[in-house]
Design a protein around this nucleic acid. Sequence first.
DNA 1: ACAAATGATACTATTATGGTATCATTTACA
DNA 2: TGTAAATGATACCATAATAGTATCATTTGT
Lengths: 148, 148
Amino acid sequence: MKLITRNTDYALRAICFVVNQEGRVVTAGELVKKLRIPRPFLRKILQSLNREGILVSTKGSGGGFYLAKPAKEIDLLELIGIFQGHLTLNECLFKKLACPNVKTCKLKKRIDKIETMVLRELAKINVASLLSEERLNVKKKDHQDRSG
Amino acid sequence: MKLITRNTDYALRAICFVVNQEGRVVTAGELVKKLRIPRPFLRKILQSLNREGILVSTKGSGGGFYLAKPAKEIDLLELIGIFQGHLTLNECLFKKLACPNVKTCKLKKRIDKIETMVLRELAKINVASLLSEERLNVKKKDHQDRSG
DNA sequence: ACAAATGATACTATTATGGTATCATTTACA
DNA sequence: TGTAAATGATACCATAATAGTATCATTTGT
Ligand code: FES
Ligand code: FES
């Protein structure tokens, strides 16, 4: 079981790279080469990040992406929200029938407490705080695909 | 994203029911009726619980299941381990290549910390502590299937 | 012997994840 | 003004994890 899926992780790597370019516009092609993420998948991810107000995109020749807000204001919880939906650690099986126990259920109470902790911690992890040490894995070999 | 999958949850409900029977041998059929879990699925779950030393089974006519150890010694972490494998919140994408950053990666460090917290809390949640308040949802209507 | 129980195990269905592939649109600039 | 270089939108496909079924073998009380 993974808390962080591939698209979230890729998004984070891409954002980190963009941050390091200090305002320069970065194209998807560049990111593909540097991060070695399959191009169509990365493109979809970048489009999401644009829609969600994390990156700004400019179209046309010379276009690309740059940060829409300070690195400090982009946290893991938000990224997970975008790519994995709301993080629900506990979900009672009697969902539709509206579980008769929700009010008293001890398990729910205890899992909820864990969930709250986890969410709080994830919200603390922001891109700026990750960047003092490098986590990008820059590569030599190019990557190729046809779409785009 | 769910921390607790169906089989883990069903297992927990089944165990709770068995605990409440105070040593009496309980059959899969009974559990199916009371908990309204699909019979073949529940049977598979009970077999796992037996293999893993949480329930003892007795075969043949009059057979069934009873607890293999005190309710206090059965915790959620163990159940999750059985049905969902080891809980890994963070798994670096460069797995096979052995990520060059594992030692320094800040993200990994921070997720690991969250993971440790979660595991510790899950280990604290044991069946006995859940049972002071009821979470079983006993039902009227029977359930039917052919296997067995 | 037979019915009532579990054990083992192989199979199937559904959903979530991890992608691909196409075509439309915008823009710089030769 | 037209073409190449970029992103936007969207539909599609592949793989893996989860959830569940189906069969047959084995054990045991009566
Ligand atoms: S049994 Fe429904 S919330 Fe716990
Ligand atoms: S980038 Fe590999 S452990 Fe973080």
